[in-house]
Amino acid sequence: MLQQLFNALALGGVYALVALGLTLVYGVMRVPNFAHGGLYMLGAYLTYAALTGLKVGYVPALILSALGVALLAALMERVIFHPLRNAPHVHPMIAAIGVLFFLEALISHPKVFGPDFKQITEPLPGIVNLGGVTLTWQRLLIIAASVLVMLGLNYFLKRTLTGATIEAMSQNREGARLVGINTNRVGMLTFAISGALAAVAASLIAPINAVTPSMGEVMNLKVFAIIILGGMGSVPGAIVGAFLLAFTEVFGGFYISLDFADVIGFAMLVVVLALRPQGLFRKGT
């Protein structure tokens, strides 16, 4: 029982990191970035490449991967989303789906990584005993790291002027331009942060799950469910939604059937949206 609690916390932490990036980008750009899962998948592969190719340690590999994906995400904003900023909303959405498929096909290519799954070995193997509850070091690491990253993000958004520009732009884009905020720069920065968060999340969970080209699609479904659940663009909504989904999946899987874990998660989404269509944290406008 307590063990399941830790499993849910670890899973929720990973979901939260990925969902936070997605919700920040939605808030600032008003575009659902369907390529977000692709960035997540790329994060896992970059970590794998750094570990096996550069033979660096787990933490430097994770940081390199976060930086690499951040850079790519910022580039994606410039090259794909920025030119489409005045086009109908469908255009950037389709472009984003295109990016997702492109990244997946690129990674699956035999000359790149190939379609087979890759394994990242746990940086801290073994288990730890916490007052009778045994859990793996990796899960503890996930929980600690995701909490740390979320605290850092919160500090950045709430306590720094640069962070405030992200919130300002998501609350009133025109108002942000009128006070002299360069919205292009904020857009790129937000994309970079969302890419880094996705890469960190992917690198944290990779030693538990296998690294595959399609891992991004699966995650995409879940994080979109989460931010719709929490309210599109809401930061607390993304965190609460992430843990809600993780707890439903883990405990649903434990008490009912592991095969039904995803079914139960999405059933919860349907129920919540039936009762509160705007999501949990979106102001009813």
Partner: peptide
């Protein structure tokens, strides 16, 4: 500087944060 019609404030940020963002060019 413009104070626009409809105000275009940042509604969920505090009054003081709105003002501080007004001074963004003097950061």
């Amino acid at each position: 500087a413009q104070c626009p019609e409809g105000r275009l404030l940042f509604p969920e940020l505090s009054v003081e944060k709105n003002l501080r963002l007004g001074a963004f060019v003097h950061r």
